[in-house]
């Protein structure tokens, strides 16, 4: 497990911290010493870069690998709905209404009471949900990171104001406020829903980022950067942020699942994305009336949400394990 030759990055131990000097004390013992060079294998402290360590742990995480694969398939299929879907999502075919799932005519998920192909509708609905969720993840991550970074780096009254605001947003019962906001501000458009979600989902990330910045700003490399005259913004983005990325990445991943769930809930309640734009939540609401007879109308869009959510959670778990330097590789 020796380090590859010519690796440009400095040695880091398993803890991500610089490794102990390999040999202490006597200068007579060096790599050239034939006596020790013979058995370096046994003596050497294992040294892997953080990136190697991440890859090694992440690829070992079987559940995360499977989840990643499924997610890529589902997301690609959803975003390419126009080419993949066998029918348009509003294509009526009353002769073939309320068919159960079948391979005939590609009605894999059956049809609804107007004969619309349910697989196509679910696919288009997933596309809407995925788009909204990705926008939410991006926006809320940017907001949360900025607010957390500024609060943690500058401290003082800036931190106080920002963090009290965060606490206040956290005091509000989240989902209820989102429902109210969507009901009062929403107009059924996916992008408005995305913005509303992002404006309320940044708080936990802001707290995490603030925590990392609080501890990182005391580190020697920040002192060094300051001493060499780097500006505050340069220090924040160039020096500290790269070291605080792990929880941000994990959080952004999990926010995608949260956003899909909340968007579906809002659309189900009728306050989110409204027809004709297809969304998984409103599909379930549509199917609710006949759910005792046409089981697929409620079950299949719901299972789609569960599948995406499960994969994101397993992926997030794998990322967390792989990015957390304090965790050992599972035996």
């Amino acid at each position: 497990m020796s380090k590859p030759p010519g690796d440009p990055l400095p040695d880091t131990g398993p803890g991500g911290a610089p490794a102990e000097p390999q040999l202490q004390g006597s200068p007579s013992v060096t790599d050239d010493d034939p006596n020790t060079a013979l058995y370096r294998e046994g003596l050497e402290v294992k040294a892997l870069t953080q990136w190697q360590l991440f890859r090694r742990k992440f690829f070992r995480h079987k559940a995360a690998m499977v989840a990643l694969f499924v997610l890529v398939v589902v997301f690609t299929a959803a975003l390419l709905a126009e080419t993949i879907a066998p029918y348009g999502y509003e294509e009526l075919d009353l002769a073939n209404a309320t068919l159960g799932p079948t391979l005939e005519d590609n009605h894999f998920f059956g049809t609804d009471k107007l004969g619309r192909d349910y697989f196509s509708r679910v696919l288009y609905g997933t596309r809407t949900s995925v788009r909204v969720a990705l926008v939410v993840a991006l926006l809320s991550t940017v907001i949360g990171t900025l607010i957390g970074a500024i609060a943690g780096y500058f401290g003082g009254w800036i931190e106080n104001v920002l963090m009290r605001t965060t606490d206040l947003v956290l005091t509000l019962p989240g989902l209820a406020v989102l429902i109210a906001a969507a009901a009062l501000l929403g107009n059924g458009s996916p992008y408005r829903v995305a913005v509303i979600l992002a404006l309320l989902l940044w708080t936990s990330l802001a707290r995490i980022v603030r925590g990392s910045f609080l501890s990182l700003r005391e580190k020697e490399f920040v002192e060094a950067a300051k001493a060499s005259g780097a500006s505050d913004w340069r220090i924040i983005f160039r020096h500290i942020l790269p070291n605080a990325l792990s929880p941000i990445i994990v959080n952004a991943t999990l926010v995608v699942a949260t956003a899909i769930l909340i968007e579906a809930t809002l659309s189900f309640l009728g306050f989110g994305i409204t027809p004709p734009t297809p969304a998984l939540g409103s599909l379930i609401e549509d199917g609710r009336n006949s759910m005792l007879t046409d089981w697929w109308l409620v079950t299949l869009p719901g299972l789609t949400i569960v599948l995406i959510g499960l994969c994101i959670n397993f992926l997030g778990d794998g990322l967390r394990d792989a990015l957390d330097p304090t965790q050992q590789v599972r035996g």
Binding site: G25, S28, G42
Partner: peptide
């Protein structure tokens, strides 16, 4: 003071 050279083996 003389430290023992090297480190304990893996």
């Amino acid at each position: 003071l003389q430290p023992i050279p090297g480190q304990p083996p893996s």
